[in-house]
């Protein structure tokens, strides 16, 4: 299907899809906003340990009204719970976990991702905007794998996957995979590779709306698990 009329998948479907790529045993940080939805789709019977930058490993779901505790919040400052096996720690340790390469995966939102894997997600640079970086730069340079979750197109219809970021960078060459409502992309040394098409999109359509030379690495047979060769 061609043109911007293609329909992608909604955020909950995308969150469920990302959850499938998080293996048991992983230590994972889910960024503020849409990535937080992923926790709803992580199988409860798997040991996947969620990290929150404000000092908790083993973060659990949203509490009931009776369980809300002002001392137990997530990075978005919303109330959460602790799971059996949880551990608390101070901020220098929490960011040592990121910077020191101990986290397996982080999933972040983005304004833009470049074809080289540069990430822009903290500041639009607009005059009058109050800049706020929080833990984004530490996560981006620290986690072993940085996944981005975002819509492929912005509200104005322009692609958020770009040749070069125009917004201020969070970190250079840090993104490994980009999950969008229309496709999943791997950042490779040869450029961006489409590894899975979502909704009624197509690689041709994706090339059209992004204006990028995308590598078609979608497995040709649905049952195949190996990533297809570049075309």
């Amino acid at each position: 299907m061609k043109g911007a009329s293609c329909r992608g998948v909604d955020r909950r479907v995308l969150a469920a899809r990302i959850a499938q790529d998080i293996p048991e045993g992983s230590y994972v940080n889910l960024g503020i906003g849409a990535p937080t939805l992923i926790s709803n789709y992580l199988p409860g019977d798997l040991d996947i340990v969620l990290h929150t930058e404000n000092g908790l490993l083993g973060m659990g779901p949203e509490p009931t009204a009776a369980e809300v505790d002002p001392d137990l919040i997530n990075a978005g400052k919303l109330p959460v719970t602790e799971l059996p096996g949880a551990a608390y720690f101070h901020h220098a340790d929490s960011f040592g976990m990121m910077r020191g390469g101990h986290l397996d995966i982080c999933v972040l939102g983005a304004f833009q991702v470049s074809q080289a894997g540069d990430l822009a997600n903290w500041h639009t640079g607009d005059a009058g905007a109050v800049p706020a970086v929080g833990g984004a730069m530490d996560l981006a340079i620290g986690a072993k794998q940085v996944f981005v979750m975002m819509d492929l197109l912005g509200r104005d219809g322009t692609s958020k996957l770009v040749a070069e970021c125009s917004y201020p960078l969070t970190a250079a060459r840090c993104v490994s995979r980009v999950y969008t409502d229309r496709a999943i992309f791997d950042v490779t040394r040869y450029g961006l590779a489409v590894i899975e098409v979502l909704g009624d999109s197509s690689v041709e359509h994706l090339r059209e709306v992004t204006g990028l030379d995308l590598i078609d690495a979608v497995p040709k047979h649905p049952a195949a698990t190996a990533v297809g060769s570049a075309s």
Binding site: H90, F95, M98, R99, G135, I141, G142
Partner: peptide
């Protein structure tokens, strides 16, 4: 950046003169 803030405080308390960070 939040990790640099925490580490700059830690460095102050631990008598470190300065440090290199990738963040």
């Amino acid at each position: 950046p939040q990790g640099n803030l925490a580490e700059r405080l830690r460095a102050a308390g631990a008598g470190i003169g300065a440090f290199y960070t990738p963040t």
